[in-house]
């Protein structure tokens, strides 16, 4: 059976020592719903959940691009879970690509999980480490 995402998250949680996705009610949880379009850059040490559209770069601790989410621009994060569309480079220590994902751009990662069915266009280079604080998204 294919690797369950739940187990990946559990593994991450065990490694990071805290929950991978913060509580949705917390101060560090940003939600971009399907009716919101952001034209510009985002920066946070928290979590971003994208159901809507971002035209610009994002730099966050973690990011979840849902099926309806659409990002044109690069993503920089510690953990990136992509189930929607990304046109641009993804740089994250841990990258999880869902089965409905479409990524047009390189995926720089230290650990990569791809579910069957994902449409990936671009290279997927491994890096010994990805420090989002030093890189400019």
């Amino acid at each position: 059976m294919f690797l369950n995402i739940g187990t990946v998250r559990d593994h991450l949680t065990a490694r990071a020592g805290d929950s991978v996705w913060p509580d949705s009610a917390s101060d560090t949880y940003t939600v971009i719903h399907s009716d919101l379009v952001i034209t510009g850059d985002l920066r946070t040490d928290g979590h971003i959940e994208v159901n809507g559209r971002i035209e610009g770069t994002s730099n966050s601790r973690s990011i979840l691009v849902r099926e309806d989410g659409w990002i044109e621009g690069s993503i920089l994060a510690d953990i990136a879970e992509i189930r929607g569309t990304v046109v641009g480079a993804v740089r994250a220590t841990t990258v999880i690509i869902g089965s409905n994902a479409r990524v047009h751009g390189s995926i720089f990662h230290n650990s990569l999980t791809i579910e069957p069915g994902a449409q990936l266009e671009g290279r997927r280079p491994w890096r010994p480490q990805i420090d989002r604080k030093q890189e400019t998204a």
Binding site: I32, H33, V37, G40, D41, L42, R43, T44, G46
Partner: peptide, 20 residues
């Protein structure tokens, strides 16, 4: 429009425009 509001959290910084 979605039923729930979009949230720009306290530690998020957006440089750019928001259309909702």
């Amino acid at each position: 429009p979605s039923a729930e509001p979009s949230i720009i959290s306290a530690d998020l910084r957006v440089v750019g425009d928001l259309h909702c």
